[in-house]
């Protein structure tokens, strides 16, 4: 086990930002911390990074209290742009790498590698303030892991990125895990990205953990209650058992079931009439679960 959060609470006088938080992350795992704005994600990150003290509880890295750990094993990408606006891209990366104790020979090699991978060759000598938001995000991301930390925290890494750059970033995250065996903790409001990258996650609501565990376990709690049907029949006028909600979007019916056991009965009803193009029973998406858990949009 790499990171262990044990009964962690953070209070500011009368306000509790994080309450009795518990989770752990295995070495080489990508772990998602999700929650609405103000749920306590950034506070949790700051406590892990020893930028803020915990009010109660302990945080361990490899069994050692986090404040005793060499800070160079940590990498951090803050939610907002955190680079020096007047510094050139290459200078900036060199500075962060040197600050993290990298050897000069390795710095040049690694900067070249990541600049090429993130398609920043033309911007190498440009000042950070002249870059687009997306490119600034890429530079900041490289700066956060150029020193190959053992544990990388990414706070909203996908914000401000277009789909192409988002894909580049996802590939980079997977690369870091697979080649460097990096342990990665990240937060995102884009649940599809969390689903795509995370093995396990923790769901926060107003500082309280609603769920901590594998994504599959979370989905299993809801069961396979998302039923998609494409048919020429009009399902809206039919009486179907166990259906909580039905919506027609671009020729497909999306049904939310009370339980997956109702699916065979529904299949029996709709297959009696006409040809069915699609009948698919799935787990809810993380986005739907998130809305249900923290947003009050019940499915």
């Amino acid at each position: 086990m790499s990171l262990k959060i044990e009964n962690v609470t953070k209070r500011y006088r009368n306000f509790t930002a994080v309450e009795n938080l518990n989770f752990h992350i295995e070495k080489g795992e990508i772990f998602g911390l999700i929650g609405q704005n103000g749920a306590g994600k950034t506070t949790t990150f700051r406590m892990i990074l020893d930028l803020q003290e915990t009010t109660e509880g302990k945080i361990y890295w490899d069994g050692q209290p986090i404040h005793k750990v060499n800070r160079d094993i940590l990498g951090y990408l803050p939610e907002e742009r955190g680079i020096f606006p007047h510094m050139k891209v290459e200078e900036q990366l060199y500075f962060f790498a040197e600050l993290r104790g990298m050897k000069k020979a390795d710095i040049k090699k690694d900067i070249d590698f990541w600049i090429e991978r993130f398609e920043l060759e033309e911007k190498r000598h440009a000042k950070a303030e002249t870059l687009s938001k997306g490119n600034q995000q890429k530079v900041q991301l490289i700066a956060s892991f150029i020193h190959k930390p053992k544990f990388l925290i990414l706070d909203e890494p996908f914000s401000g990125l277009d789909p192409v750059n988002m894909d580049l970033l996802k590939q980079a995250i997977l690369y870091l895990r697979d080649t460097e065996n990096m342990t990665i903790l990240f937060s995102s409001h884009q649940m599809n990205n969390v689903e795509e990258l995370c093995d396990r996650l923790c769901l926060l609501k107003r500082g309280v953990s609603l769920f901590s565990g594998s994504l599959l376990d979370l989905k299993k709690q809801y069961g396979k209650t998302r039923l998609t049907i494409r048919t020429a029949m009009s399902l809206a006028e039919m009486t179907l058992p166990g259906v909580k909600d039905i919506q027609l979007v671009k020729g497909e019916y999306f049904l939310t079931l009370e339980d997956e056991q109702y699916a065979p009965a529904i299949f029996g009803i709709v297959s009696r009439g006409e040809y069915i193009e699609k009948f698919s029973l799935d787990y809810l998406t993380l986005d739907e679960i998130f809305k249900d858990q923290v947003g009050g949009v019940h499915v």
């Binding site: 990074l49 800070r71 940590l74 951090y76 955190g82 020096f84 606006p85 962060f96 600050l99 700066a143």
Partner: peptide, 13 residues
């Protein structure tokens, strides 16, 4: 203001 400090303070006290 530019949040560069957050990145720095992860590395240095």
């Amino acid at each position: 203001g530019s949040r560069a400090l957050e990145m720095l303070l992860v590395s240095v006290k």
